[in-house]
């Protein structure tokens, strides 16, 4: 690991000021960033720890809207939204392993936008709003391809706001060695329609499968996605699964998601 300075920010304003330093980078749970630093794939001058910023912690519910602070860990989400938004709690409860969940945060996961990560699917599938120190960004505009988001240099996620759906489910086909999904589908039913978000599959990162959404809007049944398929061309192909296999899994996991809600 290359060396860097470590700054513990006490407030969002502190963090934003510290991030003005050239090549400074936020550190949340470190469950992605620290392994990346060990491989020398990043060389920040300063790491600005967000973990001790009180404003970034905690979960609040206002009617059908759930707001989760960016520095809230996966374990806390798994525990605290089990009643209010069970599908999201179940997603959080299945990320990695217990020690990863005790440190990893929702803000870090969303900002990182790993093409196989769980939270991007939960956020996109819920039509969530990503709140930053500066503005609010719809999930549809936030995720812009593998490891790419709408965040500007020096901008941090402060919270993620979820509209609670009528029903939702997260179907994760686990890749047991990494514990990430090989492919996973987040399906949520709202009064104004069904949303289907797919992670682990596309070279463009998380995406909405609009064909399946339209079919399910017309007829919410396992048969609706039977004849549908995604084009293998844009899928990830690696030693864990070919493009064709992943394309097939997208359909299978979507069908399982529908069945789980029938």
């Amino acid at each position: 690991m290359y060396n860097f300075d470590f700054v513990k920010a006490g407030s969002v304003a502190d963090a934003i000021a510290a991030l003005k330093e050239e090549d400074a980078q936020p550190l949340a749970g470190g469950q992605t960033l620290i392994p990346t630093l060990k491989q020398r794939l990043a060389m920040p001058s300063t790491l600005v720890s967000l973990a001790a910023i009180p404003e970034l912690h905690g979960i609040t519910q206002d009617g059908d809207t759930l707001t989760i602070g960016a520095a809230t860990t996966h374990s806390t989400v798994a525990r605290e939204v089990a009643q209010s938004y069970p599908a999201l709690a179940s997603l959080a409860a299945r990320i990695g392993d217990p020690a990863v969940r005790n440190r990893g945060t929702i803000g870090g996961s969303i900002a990182n936008n790993d093409p196989s990560a769980c939270y991007p699917a939960g956020a996109l599938g819920s039509g969530a709003t990503i709140v930053t120190n500066d503005r609010e960004i719809a999930a549809d505009d936030f995720f812009q391809g593998m490891f790419t988001t709408a965040l500007e240099e020096g901008e941090i996620v402060t919270a993620v706001r979820f509209p609670i759906p009528q029903a939702a489910t997260y179907q994760k086909f686990i890749q047991p060695a990494s514990r990430f999904p090989l492919v996973a589908v987040y399906l949520a039913k709202y009064a104004d329609g069904v949303r289907v978000a797919v992670t682990g599959a596309s070279e463009e990162g998380v995406f909405r499968w609009s064909e399946a959404e339209a079919a399910l809007d017309a007829d919410f049944g396992a048969g609706a996605v039977k004849g549908l398929s995604v084009e293998p061309g844009g899928m990830i192909g690696d030693i864990h699964g070919s493009k064709d296999y992943r394309a097939h899994l997208v359909q299978v996991m979507t069908k399982r998601a529908v069945e789980a809600l029938l």
Partner: peptide, 14 residues
């Protein structure tokens, strides 16, 4: 809490 000591900076444990 269970934590991987290889994935936390010493200064974070201050």
């Amino acid at each position: 809490e269970a934590v991987k000591a290889c994935t936390m900076l010493a200064l974070e444990a201050d």
